[in-house]
């Protein structure tokens, strides 16, 4: 048990490092295809975090939905619009500096607000079964049944809307 504790910590630091680095590369890489691939790496790192947090079902869903579906959609659109070259004219340096400054200030405010916060007491005993399908399914279909049905209507509406917007004008 003593040997296992640092392993989890090392995994946390490694996954955090990968997520932050790939997140930065999404913003700063010139080629949109490279941005998409870095974002996929970020999503895999976040899925690793989910597994470390005992949210196994969400980790699988996250990989399937984000890395599998959404990112493929992004890649498809980039290839369809033939944007896979770095032709983008960049903003001028003043706007870029202002963006970096604003981002740094946002991070400073967020971490600064954390400084005075009290440390929360963890719920004891820790239930490691929370993220499994059985438990989540019970909660989803008992407490959250109505939002679940509403989300199906939302997905249907989004599908119809996407097809309506995407199709060519019919004369």
């Amino acid at each position: 048990m003593l040997l296992n504790i640092p392993l989890t910590q090392y995994l946390f630091y490694f996954l955090s490092f990968v997520a932050l680095l790939c997140g930065l590369m999404v913003v700063f890489s010139k080629n949109p295809v490279h941005s998409v691939l870095y974002l996929v790496l970020t999503f895999f790192a976040i899925a690793g975090h989910y597994i470390l947090l005992n949210a196994q079902f969400l980790a699988i869903v996250h990989i399937v939905v984000y890395a599998g579906a959404i990112m493929v959609l992004f890649l498809f659109v980039i290839m369809l619009l033939n944007l896979n070259h770095d032709s983008e004219p960049h903003k001028n340096m003043l706007l870029k500096g202002a963006a970096v400054l604003a981002g740094g200030l946002l991070l400073m405010v967020l971490t600064g607000s954390l400084k005075g916060a009290e440390t929360l007491a963890m719920h004891q005993p820790l239930n490691t079964q929370v993220g499994l399908i059985k438990n989540l399914g019970t909660v989803l279909f008992k407490d959250f049944l109505f939002p679940f049905e509403i989300s199906s209507i939302l997905l249907l509406g989004a599908m119809v809307g996407a097809v309506m917007i995407g199709k060519k004008e019919i004369k």
Binding site: V27, E88, H90
Partner: peptide
């Protein structure tokens, strides 16, 4: 970690001109 990831996202929205990014 979440604050840093959120900030990177917000930075990207302000930094880039490509709508897909």
């Amino acid at each position: 970690l979440s604050a840093a990831l959120f900030t990177i996202g917000a930075l990207g929205v302000m930094f880039r001109r490509n709508a897909i990014i």
